[in-house]
Nucleic acid binder design. Structure first.
Lengths: 313, 313
DNA sequence: TCAATTTTCACAAACGTTTGCTGAAATGGA
DNA sequence: TCCATTTCAGCAAACGTTTGTGAAAATTGA
């Protein structure tokens, strides 16, 4: 019958199938996706949960996800969990009400770890920017420890001895990891870890700015700042400029992420690049592959970040 | 029965309804959205078509749309029409296959005008950044003519007499409008319109950069550049900096859009602000209102942009 | 108390697919 | 030619809702 013909199932002569497909085309037939979902008990919808879709960090990630979703015939729906804790209801909602086939959760807080790990979800979960050990959880992340190590090591190799670090919210694994990478690089170079050189922010411009202002008051002054992300590095650049100091002559600055705008700062920002579009693509393709039964759950993929040398360090 | 109780329909005693709702809650009941859509023949899905979701211009727009969609119980699905012409199939696809209840199309090219205007669509269409007269089409746009007029006028008032304009792709109404606003301001001030002071780009950084490099070669040199959007203004700033000239001392620069980064350029960019989040909110709320039958189709809403004075002009 | 009216409740059809099942037709081998 | 096997076609059930319809129950007015 028609359904079997269009879906390439058994029991239809090739010639008949072709005729059916052709006339369906002519009649402008499009299957009703709702009826399909209802009877097959699965949808072609993937839910994506992230903090705030408007943050520049996410744009390339989203683009990558959309690209692969288009190719594979899946539809993405986005949910903003502005405060991380709301994420819980977001997850339930997407699974229960929206009937998503799978879920991608970007950059959840470590506070959610038990929640995410403790149960087996009705649908496969892909965690981006997280590395959890729970066997059913699929994780994709950039090795932030290695990235931070590279950045710090580079500064040390350039002769810097007092290197400040503005780390992100420590509820997030990436912030912890970047701090860890910073510490290790220091330790490996035989440099002391000085508490007063580490400030904490929330990954936003304002915090990078304020933290840097504080750090600049210290004597002896640091000669380099490694920011936990590019946005805070922009704040650092601003604070340094206002202090009348020159980057990189007086102070070097290194960021993390390599946002598009980092090419355009003054001076262009040396930073650790995360392959954001690649990660987005990977997140969807892994999930699709799991949904198709081609891949076992429990995928763990780590990307290695790259230090991009520009003029700020 | 249960359905009527949960949906607040007639024929259910208040007390019974409450009991039903309560037990439904206890049982963790969530209605199957597909079955609902199937029988009511309508979905709670809104399709959004734009050129490229990863462009910074769209982020606030998306945020605003998501915000209102969440509130009103609608789900947004995004489609990137990388090349504008692909938009056609995108529109068909969303209506036919995805069964969207309505469609928001952001920044379509004027080449698509006949296509969009010529027929009455199965679902309501909201066009953002466009103003078309077709009676069934709902349009939301920023008055780019007024915005460009304000920007140019401001430069004139500051004493500039040779003002360059880098306009965007002239397939887009906003580019035409901004050029028009520029011309009108010139005319009103009794200044000549000089062709060689107008360059054309595609709204991207690189084009702003290249165009400015060219313009700077002219003698007498212009003393101000009005860019068709902020991204091209960033390119202009870069080109000017490389020429050894100072902004705003030697050349003033004004942009259009007021992207987040425009606060962080060197110097911070004077620009025409578009209320992007507001527009996103409005787009969805209008559409929802039309879908609910509360608003007649054919809505035309124009926002007035604001000139944000910073240090680049 | 009884009829008229209103409220409540349950049944069943319908939405547009997929898919198991059954019988018919075609094909192949002897 | 006939039986066994394979291929094909179509019927009907099921997915989980909404909603029209009609019966039963409750309420009202006289």
């Amino acid at each position: 019958m028609v359904s079997r013909a269009l879906n390439n199932k058994y029991g239809v002569k090739a010639e008949t199938r072709e005729r059916i497909v052709r006339t369906a085309q002519e009649m402008g037939y499009h299957p009703n996706i709702l009826a399909q979902g209802l009877v097959t008990r699965k949808t072609n919808t993937i839910g994506v949960v992230m903090a705030d879709i408007s943050e520049p960090f996410f744009s390339q990630l989203i683009k990558g996800m959309n690209l692969v979703a288009d190719e594979t015939g899946y539809t993405l729906i986005y949910y903003n969990s502005y405060e991380s804790l709301v994420e819980r209801s977001a997850v339930e909602h997407m699974i229960k009400a929206q009937r998503v086939a799978g879920l991608i959760i970007v950059g959840s807080s470590i506070k959610e770890d038990k929640y995410l790990s403790s149960r087996t979800w009705e649908v496969p979960l892909v965690l981006v920017e997280r590395r959890l050990t729970a066997p059913r959880l699929n994780c994709i992340w950039v090795d932030s420890i290695a990235g931070a190590y590279k950045a710090t090591r580079y500064l040390i190799d350039q002769g810097h001895r007092r290197i400040a670090h503005i780390c992100g919210t420590l509820d997030f694994q990436v912030a912890l990891d970047r701090l860890e990478g910073y510490k290790r690089a220091l330790a490996d170079a035989g440099l002391p870890y000085e508490e007063e050189l580490v400030a904490s922010g929330h990954f936003v411009w304002q915090d990078g700015y304020t933290a840097t202002k504080e750090i600049l008051k210290q004597t002896p002054r640091c000669t380099a700042v490694f920011a936990g992300n590019d946005t805070m590095a922009y704040g650092a650049l601003q604070a340094i400029a206002e202090s009348g100091l020159k980057v990189p002559r007086d102070i070097a600055v290194v960021g993390f992420d390599d946002l598009e705008f980092s090419l355009l700062t003054n001076p262009p920002l040396t930073t650790v690049r995360q392959p954001r579009m690649e990660m987005g693509k990977k997140a969807v393709s892994i999930l699709v592959s799991i949904l198709a039964g081609k891949t076992e759950e429990g995928v763990k993929i780590s990307f290695t970040p790259e230090l991009i040398l520009r003029r700020s360090a």
